[in-house]
Design a protein around this nucleic acid. Structure first.
Length: 440
RNA sequence: CGGAGCAUAGCGCAGUCCGGUAGCGCACCUCGUUUGGGACGAGGGGGUCGCAGGUUCGAAUCCUGCUGCUCCGACCA
């Protein structure tokens, strides 16, 4: 992409409404625009990041055996009356009427609808286990939206729903998602820690919030230092290995970890002082088992091997990709701007033509741009007639992981300057060595 | 939902108390000089001053009502 033809409305000054760093940087980097309280338009740069996050989430869901579908944003009130939640949900639910005065709602979540879909087709235990998910916009009419994408009213959510014959099966389904989440956040370049969450109506130990560590995170978290070093399961993890998966989950849940509202100072004090970690974090995922809470009232039943119909045991698993865009920035930025992890960067490489209009630099940049494009690398070529300093500032602000600086100085020596945004390191490399580095 | 505040050019703000030609910086356009960390000079364009009433010869400014947004608290992917 040529910057001169891209739509990148960056700002030098900070809009006053933006309070937290991710919100400020997203506005300054031209990633999104507020259209109403808690409602945002994604501009091209922001959309690129959102799509990359979404794709990683999708790949890890698929790897764990979940199957993607897509449910609508608008739902019928009748469905929610069946579960009893239409009245229970409260004002957070956006309720609307169609032209025939039928009561509808903009879905804040999809347990009812997925249960309706399940019961329409699945009759036998032989079709279990089943895990269906979608990535769809949700709307929750929060009293007070704030912090930009971190707490918007409209947000993108990946929500998965598992169906099993019994609780033992449900535990395995839960564990699959648990491990999938560990892998997902690791791939996004984040350090995530599962923390025991309010167990809800069912009780038990099958509810966890996934918190990522970020110095500017909104909640305080306390955990055992060992969490920072536990290896995340590799891509070859066997999701059908019930025992193996359980031991991974055990490893990730045996030590102390809690957010401030669940914090037990005494228990935390038991940990030796050098192993205590008090940090800040952001909730980016939540998984829980809720048994037959919806299957019972909504009659989602299957016949077991004994021929007897039983309500299925369900769990649900949420990740907010739109919140993750902001969360990643909170976890990875500096005074100059965003530092995207390579996996989610809107562009992997930026080419900075330091002397636009000079035939030697133009030729070198154009050629190199074509070479990278030919290799299938996401590259943003700054071919604007801005001065060098302005181009450096822009590239740093929007956080492109690799900046290839091409100017008369380097060209005289036959080299490009390659800067790594993550640590600011630079080296002068020949064009061939640069290509080599970027395609490694 | 309780409390506080804001609304003037794309962004950041002054002007409002004390009514009298709507301003500044950045951004944008033109020309020139510049060109390795957000250049300089000259010229230029852009506004129903959130909306609706009212007072007045005259309202961004005073009065009334409304709307939108932000922050603190309670609540949450």
């Amino acid at each position: 992409m040529r910057l001169s033809r891209f739509f990148l409305p960056i700002m030098k000054e900070i809009p006053k409404e933006a309070e937290i760093v991710s919100h400020r940087l997203m506005l300054r980097a031209g990633m999104m625009r507020q259209e109403a309280a808690g409602i945002y338009a994604f501009l091209p740069l922001g959309l690129r990041v959102l799509r990359k996050i979404e794709q990683i989430v999708r790949e890890e869901q698929n790897r764990a055996g979940a199957i993607e579908l897509l449910m609508p944003t608008i739902q019928s009130a009748d469905l929610w009356r069946e579960s009893g939640r239409y009245d229970a949900y409260g004002k957070e639910m956006l309720r609307i009427k169609d032209r025939h005065e039928r009561e509808m709602l903009y879905g804040p979540t999809n347990e009812e609808m997925i249960t309706e879909i399940f019961r329409a087709y699945v009759r036998s235990y032989k079709d279990l286990p089943l895990n269906l998910y979608h990535i769809q916009w949700k709307f929750r009419d929060e009293v007070r939206p704030r912090f930009g994408l971190m707490r918007g009213r409209e947000f993108l959510m990946k929500d998965a729903y598992s169906f099993d014959l019994d609780q033992a099966g449900a535990r395995h389904s839960y564990n699959k998602m648990f491990v999938a989440y560990l892998r997902t956040f690791a791939r996004l370049g984040l350090k995530s820690i599962p923390m025991r969450a309010e167990s809800g109506p069912i009780g038990g130990d099958m509810s966890h919030e996934f918190i990522i560590l970020a110095s500017t995170g909104e909640s305080e978290v306390y955990c055992h230092k060992d969490y920072l070093d536990i290896p995340v399961p590799g891509a070859d993890v066997d999701f059908d290995d019930i025992v193996g998966l359980q031991s991974t989950v055990d490893q990730w849940t045996s030590n102390y970890a809690a957010t401030s509202d669940m914090h037990d100072a005494a228990a935390f004090g038991q940990i030796s002082a050098d192993k205590q970690v008090a940090a800040r974090g952001i909730e980016v995922g939540h998984i829980f088992y809720f048994g037959t809470k919806y299957s019972e009232p909504m009659k989602a039943v299957v016949s077991g091997p004994d021929g007897i119909e039983k309500p299925v045991h369900m769990g649900s698993y949420g990740i907010g990709p739109s919140r993750l865009v902001a969360a990643i920035i909170e976890a990875s930025h500096d005074d100059a701007g965003i530092k995207w992890p390579e996996a989610v960067a809107p562009f992997r490489v930026a080419i900075l033509n330091l002397k636009q209009g000079d035939s030697a630099t133009d030729t070198a940049c154009e050629g190199f741009y074509r070479d990278l494009m030919g290799k299938g690398i996401d590259v943003l070529y700054d071919d604007t007639d801005q001065r060098a300093g302005s181009k450096f500032a822009t590239a740093d602000l929007i956080g492109i992981p690799w900046q290839v600086v091409i100017g008369p100085k380097g060209l005289a020596a036959g080299t490009f300057e390659v800067k790594k945004r993550a640590d600011g390191s630079r080296e002068n490399l020949s064009p061939a060595a640069t290509i080599d580095l970027l395609t490694r």
